[in-house]
Amino acid sequence: MKKRILVIGQLDGFANSVRPRQIQRFLTDGGHETEILEGADHLASPLRLPESLLEGTS
């Protein structure tokens, strides 16, 4: 069953950028639709999430 998965990470020029991309690649190779959202400031309110992430959630 294909799922839409959001990977949240604080991407920078160091190791913090590696793991979220590895997770995304693993899930994509498994047939899931994935997207990386940089930073946790979007979690304070669902109204701050980009429109593309809210599609099909209701």
Rank of each mutant, 00 (worst) to 15 (best):
S58P: 06
F14V: 01
D12Y: 08
R25K: 15
G56A: 14
P20W: 09
S52V: 12
Q24S: 06
G13N: 13
G9R: 07
E38T: 11
D12Q: 08
Q24T: 03
D41I: 03
S45T: 01
T34S: 06
L11E: 07
M1T: 06
E38C: 11
A15K: 02
I36V: 13
L11P: 00
V18Q: 03
V18R: 04
S45M: 04
I8R: 09
T28F: 12
Q22L: 13
G13A: 12
P50T: 05
P46Q: 01
E35L: 10
D41T: 06
I36H: 02
K3I: 07
T34F: 12
R19G: 06
Q24H: 12
R19H: 10
I8A: 10
N16H: 15
A15N: 00
R21G: 00
R21T: 01
Q22M: 14
D29G: 11
V7T: 02
R21V: 04
A15P: 00
G56Q: 08
Q22T: 03
S52T: 08
K3N: 10
F26T: 13
L6V: 15
L54W: 04
Q24D: 04
Q22C: 09
G9V: 12
F26M: 12
F14K: 13
T34D: 03
E33R: 07
E51T: 05
P50Q: 13
G13Y: 13
G30N: 12
F14R: 15
L49R: 02
S52G: 02
T28S: 10
A44D: 06
G9C: 13
G31S: 06
F26R: 14
T28L: 09
I23Y: 11
Q10L: 15
G56W: 03
G30C: 09
L49N: 01
L27F: 13
Q10S: 09
R25V: 01
T28M: 11
Q22P: 00
I23K: 03
L37Y: 06
R21C: 00
S17W: 02
N16Q: 11
L27K: 03
E35H: 08
E33P: 01
Q22H: 06
L54Y: 01
A40F: 15
K3L: 11
Q22W: 09
R21P: 00
Q10W: 14
K2G: 01
E38N: 13
K2C: 04
P20L: 08
K3V: 05
G9L: 15
L49I: 02
M1P: 06
M1H: 15
I5F: 02
S52M: 07
P50Y: 07
